[in-house]
Design a protein around this nucleic acid. Structure first.
Lengths: 268, 268
DNA sequence: TCACTGGCTACAGCATACAAAGTACGTGCC
DNA sequence: GGCACGTACTTTGTATGCTGTAGCCAGTGA
């Protein structure tokens, strides 16, 4: 027995530089400072962040495996430019994963968990009232992450986290539009989970994510390009999680095609 | 406009060393040469593979993001030691993803695709007859990957690929036991897909993956440790995709307890 | 004999140096 | 004037060197 009671007063462990760099670059992408399709030169980033190329390289590899950048051998890293089809597919997968996590959460959540969900909801609606987009996005992310956490399935939770981050990026320009209704749906979701009704929670979540997907499709129909950069189409992802090499389009992409046809496709 | 019509006859690009190293290490893990929980020393691996530490580092980072190794800051890389609970959760998620990909595949597969599926099936049953475990595992992987590919959802396909690889690793010791019945189920699946019956394909796939999961649970119930290494329990994954920090057990684990008690329900 | 401290060793993290590949541009030839 | 080739520059890929930290062990004092 140590005389110091493991008080969790431990000093912060040295955060690996690659982590910090990873977060920094991610921020730059999400904030739009680095545009989709842009070539990321290692030396330049290293300079800008005040570190050597090594941690930058490692951060880029990590970003690649998360689907944020595409690594083309001997060419370097490019900010991933999601196509509308890919975004749609991602949203479909997201719906699938989150639906299941809602179902499981209803079966496993604790009292404290329910309280946490309600707290996120409160923060979300507050942000909505204050028209604070940043806080709104954060509350949304927190709520969904909490549901995934309460599912009790760690693998599912991690997958949801990974997918959600990308969804949030694609979805950011749309976020504001889905405000009020989205939080009504959240309320319904929380009640279903609190009641322990897995099927209903799943159904609510399914509808909720589907609404999100449709909202997104409407927007891309008018906006056309996802992130508004002409270079989007070219990048055949070298490998990575998000390569869209051979696969065709999803069922739901038919919807996309329909919608986009009215608004003018990029190629015409 | 280039005079060469981008014929995709391009000469093989120099494969980055990190890729080769990644594959080499992955093989060593899957083959069991590197045991679960083992400390992977960069310099040692570099020496063994005849490269410098740099590409080894990059390969390890990649393996970390795939959940194959755990990277503990200032300690290095350790072969990930999956707990039974985590394996169970992974199998549950896998079932979810594959069920959906089967449903979509039924709606999108082409004639050529159906032929490919039948070809995989033939190879699998041949391997079964010849008692060739390696070929059996390969055919199984190929079949499932093909289904995911035909789903038309690239994001889903990549996620399935990622999850399946790990499943295959955990599942390898069990593979032989599930031979015959598994391929009957595959046949049923292919017919459902060929008939374009998405709901039935989904249901067949759901049952199929569930059977696999149950088979796995039976085995671990007797074997206890997943990879038969005493160090399995200790490793709190530092971060990485597969950290199981806070989450409890999945709902299905309750099934595990039930099933294993009656000793085997695969046939029943 | 036990607890503690100081030093030693091994290793990862980070930086830098060098090599190879790709790209762009300018020059010469047709 | 346009195309093809060659050269110089840019950028990635790989190797190696340096530093700080963690864990271990021996030595010292109670």
């Amino acid at each position: 027995m140590p005389k110091l009671p493991t008080d969790d007063r431990r000093v912060a462990r040295p955060v690996p530089l690659r982590e910090s760099v990873h977060n920094a670059i991610l921020d730059m992408i999400v904030e739009g400072e680095l545009k989709a399709g842009q070539h990321l030169v290692e030396a330049e980033l290293a300079n800008r962040l005040g570190v050597s190329r090594q941690p930058v390289r490692e951060a880029l590899q990590l970003l690649n495996s998360d689907g944020w950048v595409d690594l083309r051998p001997a060419h370097g890293a490019f900010v991933h430019a999601p196509t509308p089809a890919e975004a749609d597919q991602l949203l479909a997968v997201r719906g699938l994963l989150e639906t299941e996590s809602a179902r499981l959460a209803a079966a496993h959540v604790s009292e404290a968990g329910i309280a946490e969900l309600r707290d996120w909801w409160r923060r979300g609606t507050d942000a909505l009232a204050a028209d604070d987009v940043a806080a709104l996005v954060e509350a949304n992310a927190g709520l969904h992450a909490a549901v995934a956490r309460f599912s009790g399935n760690a693998v599912l939770r991690d997958l949801v986290a990974q997918v959600d981050r990308r969804v949030r990026w694609y979805f950011r320009p749309v976020a504001r539009d889905r405000g009020a209704q989205s939080w009504d749906e959240h309320a319904e979701l929380i009640e279903a989970i609190a009641a322990g009704d897995g099927d209903r929670a799943a159904e609510v979540m399914r509808r909720h994510t589907e609404e999100t997907r449709l909202t997104y499709l409407e927007h891309t129909a008018s906006d056309d390009a996802v992130t508004g950069d002409g270079t989007a189409g070219d990048g055949a992802a070298a490998n990575g999680t998000a390569g869209n090499g051979t696969a065709g389009t999803d069922a739901v992409s038919e919807v996309a095609a329909t919608v986009t046809r009215e608004g003018g496709r990029r190629a015409g």
